[in-house]
Amino acid sequence: MASVATSLHSRRETAYAAPRATQDPVWVRWLLTGVALAFLGLFLLLPLAAVFAEALRKGLGAYFASFNDPDAFSAIKLTLTAAAISVPANLVFGVAASWAIAKFSFRGKSLLITLIDLPFAVSPVISGLIYVLVFGAQGWFGPWLSDHDIKIIFAVPGIVLATIFVTFPFVARELIPLMQAQGTDEEYAAISLGASGWQTFWRVTLPNAKWGLFYGVILCNARAMGEFGAVSVVSGHIRGETNTMPLHIEILYNEYNFVAAFAVASLLAVLALVTLVLKSLVEWKHHQTNAE
């Protein structure tokens, strides 16, 4: 159905003469296209290629050997752990917050929206420092925490907290505009048909927002795995214990261990590519369901 609609649509478009504004001389068109492509190549494709080229400089053997290192392994594990905790946490929070913001009116709503945006506005280093000030040895809760033998800063909980903070806005920011655009009529319809609030949420609100939700989760995950600044402040860079992949890459690079650094970096690059493919798929699918 959708494909028929698209082909009809494109046929109709070609039936019209190209508008004046797009009838520039050939050299202008080539020049503009060329500039755009050169920019894309220089700033996006070249670095990406460089990562893989550097990683594979000494051959596939050296490349895979880089992963056969307990520290690299533990960094990958820690990154996955941090993402596995922070993404579901922000998924729940993001859905709850956007549901409240888009479907209800209450006092302090704009304050909540501002707070959700806070992690975008604050430098990641500051976000990390906040946790050091609160939970660090000299921080507010520092003495109490050390009395009870709880380690947050320079330990995994601190890294998870910092990651949650930094990735806080992604899901909510994606869902709020979508849910607002969809309005509340369908929810009212569900309620007038006898559905409870819970049923309305699960059967109407959430299914309507599912593509936006996937999209938000994908972006949130990418950021959770790639976060450097905030995590760097709270991590303490203890090898094999509190190093995430980005931190591990930095350490390897500073030790002139370029092949290993770029090999781990190539994993993050692959993650980025997978994210982009998923994102495009979701966008395409979302567009298709909307166009139907």
Binding site: D185, E186, A189, V204
Partner: peptide, 8 residues
């Protein structure tokens, strides 16, 4: 509803 509010 005015704009039907069908579950899309």
């Amino acid at each position: 509803f005015q704009h039907y509010a069908l579950f899309r």
